[in-house]
Computed example of a mutant assay.
Amino acid sequence: MYTSPPVRCHEYFPKNKRGSDFFVGDLHGEFKELQQLLKQINFNFSSDRLFATGDLIDRGSDSLKCLKLLNQDWFFSVLGNHELFLLEYDDDNLYKNMIWKKNGGSWFHSITDEEKILSRQLIVNNMKLTLTVNTHIGLVGIIHAEYPFRTWPKEDISELDKELLHQALWGRNIIKNKLVFYTKGAKLIISGHTSVALPVLLGNQLFLDTGAGSPPNESIYSPHLSICEVSEKHLKLHSLGYEPKYISIDG
């Protein structure tokens, strides 16, 4: 029998009246790169907030440090499929564990039993399937992969069947086929999961995973972390060591 992930389905964040909000793609263990990029954008840890697209762990060198960011009052993240690997870890399921190892999960076997318990607790206690952030341009939704509806938000997404939950955590159809549509109820939806050389906006869904933690390949010559700011007319995109790039929200 299928059971949904043991995390809450949705959380709403009111406008940040004290500082700015930023959005970051999949970290994949790149804690040091994140700290350097936050310094580059002058992130204020006392007043700003950072929202992540999930997949904090695996591939990079500091998965546990990235998970511990969930303890910070300025950091929030949706659940990614790599966190689901961890939640579903079972010593007796050799096949599933092999798949996780092939996707960067070896670090989990090098930490203590106490740290393994802590890792699971951090995910269950802090991660959600979807987040909504009220910004000065309207509602910004966050989901790891694809949002399977046409109106945001679906607050009972945790009650979905296995197929729709798989789309939310694993789906690649929109980005692979360059599908353009606009989800009602949100000004913007931000996702990660599928690595792209540069962030891609399709309709009102932004794909922000630019390959952090992965080696260079023929599609992404320079994998890196990307952080996004939103304004009325454009998205301001930051990466380490480069001047910001811009994407028009209206195309």
Results as ranks from 00 to 15, higher is better:
M1L: 10
P5F: 01
P6C: 13
C9E: 15
K15N: 10
S20M: 10
F22K: 08
D26R: 11
G29A: 04
K32N: 13
L34N: 06
L37H: 02
K39F: 06
S46W: 04
L50M: 00
F51W: 04
F51C: 00
R59E: 04
R59W: 05
S61E: 13
D62S: 14
L67F: 02
L69F: 05
N71R: 14
N71Y: 08
W74K: 03
S77V: 01
H82S: 03
L87N: 06
Y89L: 05
Y89E: 11
D90Q: 09
D91S: 14
Y95N: 09
M98T: 09
G104A: 02
S106I: 06
S110M: 09
E115Y: 03
L118N: 03
S119T: 03
Q121N: 13
N125Q: 10
N125S: 14
N126F: 01
L131E: 01
T135M: 04
T135H: 01
G138R: 00
V140F: 01
A145F: 00
E146S: 07
Y147V: 02
R150I: 00
T151M: 06
E155A: 03
E155V: 12
D156N: 15
D161F: 07
L169M: 15
N173V: 07
I174F: 02
L188Y: 00
L188F: 09
S191F: 03
H193G: 10
T194A: 06
V196C: 08
A197P: 10
L198D: 15
L198A: 11
P199A: 08
L202R: 10
G203Y: 03
D209K: 08
G211Y: 04
A212R: 04
P215M: 10
P215L: 12
P216K: 14
E218G: 09
S222I: 12
L225D: 10
S226N: 13
K233C: 07
K233D: 15
L237F: 07
S239V: 14
L240G: 07
L240M: 07
K245F: 10
